[in-house]
Structure formats: structure tokens, C-alpha cells
Design a protein around this nucleic acid. Structure first.
Lengths: 149, 149
DNA sequence: AAGGTAGATGAAAACGATTTTCACATCAAT
DNA sequence: ATTGATGTGAAAATCGTTTTCATCTACCTT
């Protein structure tokens, strides 16, 4: 239940899901600052590294909740790891992800959307959803191989 | 390394990768018979159930090899589990997968392919690959809810 | 402001899929 | 048949993610 949000102590920043705690703010903040797809683990490492000690479970819980609330997108990298990205708008987008450095480029996705819809309609399937992931090696990484994070 | 394939005894009907062993034939056979996406675990369970005892590791190894050799497609289900499907032809396809019964329908994917290529070209990324998964509820399952496998 | 309580946290354990290890079995060229 | 490369499998190791559970805290009520 996320509907009623009794607002007494308005924090400083963005409102998140459920109770407003410092940890959630930290995770969301880090996710926003990341500006691209990050794994929960990476986010956690970064937070801990910055001195903000947040439990790994909390990072996972928060990210999952954000995704469920539609405030984050999730993709899976080639190893099956989940990468999260803060979603500014309510629209559904697709990204081109660099498998070397994690750089993510939003791409023009109109055609796929249309295609997906058409397929959905002609198939008779209900509730059709799609996952589209493009990945490759960005120009920079292509130029200087082998210097990932 | 799967590149060099000392081939003296050309197998007749089902060609596999590397050495021709009974286990590989079993796995490939089961994959073909499955006619849709199956997880390595499910395949293994089925094989063992049928009396053909093949090690789980071997199932994984074979499926992975098949995929690398382009003879199988891989998708990820919502839990991150890998599902494998035998690919008859050398072409790359996309499927519409029923989340209830597992039915998979190959879909007309020309437009996405073109789109993916276009995006790849205009992005400057190298080696761009794409994963496209459509999932929904097939007409049958839609009609009779709640009788999954 | 104090208290109560549903909700949140985190360390550690549990999980589940996949991979690796390694001793042993098997394939296939000789 | 011999033999060396290759494949196999049971068990252990990985690794990302989830759960457990005792403890803490935000926040509503008094």
C-alpha cells in the first residue's frame, strides 16, 4: 500500500515509497547521481565507500521497491545481474548499454513500441509486455580496450 | 575453446559440438523435443525422470556450448533463470512467450532487427547485440485462468 | 512530549541458479 | 588394444539476491 502518505516531516529531497528513512534517501540519492545503470552491489559499495553505511539488504529492498513503484528501470546484464536506473519520467524507455563501462544511452524506441503493440494485437495474447536490451561496446571503450572499472 | 573440431567421423543425423557423446545427444534430443523454452534444470529433471541419467553440469555445459555454437537461443525469465530453446535454422528469432503455460510463438521480427541495426549504426557502438522478449498471456490461458503446469 | 506499533534495518544465514574442481570414464586416432 | 585428449559428474564453490529475526525508528495517537 503506497497510496496514503501522511506528510508531517517533509525531509529535504524526494519522497519515496513507504516510510521516509535516511537509508532510502541515501539509496535513491545514489541511484540518481549514478546517472545510468548500476547494480545493487555497486551502489552499496559506493555508499559504504562514501561513509554512508547502508545495509546491502536495504539497498536491494529499496531498489526493488523503487522499480515496483515505477521509479526505476531494470535490465539484466549478460551475467544475469540486475542493473537499476532511476527513471525520471513516467515513460517507458530503452537503452543501449556499454558492456565495458556501463555507459547507457537512451535510444529512439518508437519503432519497437509500435512493433510490440502490433505483435501483441495480432497474436491474441493479453497483457503483452516487452523487454528490449541493446548492448555493445561504446566508442570510447572500443578505442581503449581493457580499462573497465 | 570450441574452435578446432577434429572431425573424422562425420555424424549422420544430429551433429553436435566437439566430441560426440551419449550425454550430449540426450541433452540435444531433449532440447529439440521440448519445442519451446526450457530451463537447464527442467531439462535435467526431465532427463533423469526418463531414466537417462545425465549430470546437471553436463546439461549446463552442453546447453551453453549449443548456444555459443548458435544452435540454441537463450532468454531470461523474470527470475533471471535462463531458458534455452533449440534453434533449427541459422537465423535469429524472437518469441512471444506465454507466462502461464510457456507456449512460445515465433514472431515477425524484421522491424526490430532493422531498428536494432539502425540504432547500432547511429550510436557508434561496436558489437551491438540485442535481447528482445515479448511475454503475455495466450488466448487459451486467458480463457481458462489458473490452470498452469 | 511520551508511548505504542507498524514498518524498516542489517548481519548473517538461506537460497537458487550456474560454474568450477578434480578424479575418473570415454572417445577416437593410432 | 593403447593412449592422450576430452567429456563427465558429484560435490563444493561462486555469486547475486532474498529471507530471517532481533532490534531500532518513524510517525500516529494520547
Amino acid at each position: 500500500m503506497v497510496s496514503n502518505r501522511p506528510r508531517t516531516t517533509a525531509p529535504h529531497d524526494v519522497v519515496l515509497i513507504g516510510r521516509s528513512t535516511q537509508q532510502r534517501a541515501l539509496v535513491l540519492g545514489a541511484l540518481i547521481v549514478a546517472e545510468g545503470f548500476v547494480s545493487a552491489q555497486a551502489l552499496h559499495k559506493q555508499l559504504v565507500g562514501t561513509g554512508s553505511s547502508v545495509g546491502l539488504s536495504t539497498v536491494y529492498r529499496t531498489l526493488t521497491a523503487l522499480a515496483e513503484a515505477g521509479r526505476a528501470d531494470i535490465v539484466r546484464d549478460t551475467n544475469g545481474e540486475r542493473l537499476f536506473r532511476h527513471r525520471p519520467g513516467p515513460d517507458h524507455r530503452h537503452y543501449l548499454l556499454c558492456t565495458e563501462c556501463g555507459l547507457s544511452l537512451p535510444v529512439e524506441s518508437g519503432p519497437v513500441e509500435k512493433w510490440a503493440e502490433r505483435v501483441a494485437r495480432s497474436s491474441g495474447f493479453a497483457n503483452v509486455r516487452h523487454v528490449v536490451e541493446l548492448s555493445g561496446i561504446c566508442p570510447d571503450c572500443e578505442r581503449q580496450p581493457g580499462q573497465a572499472t
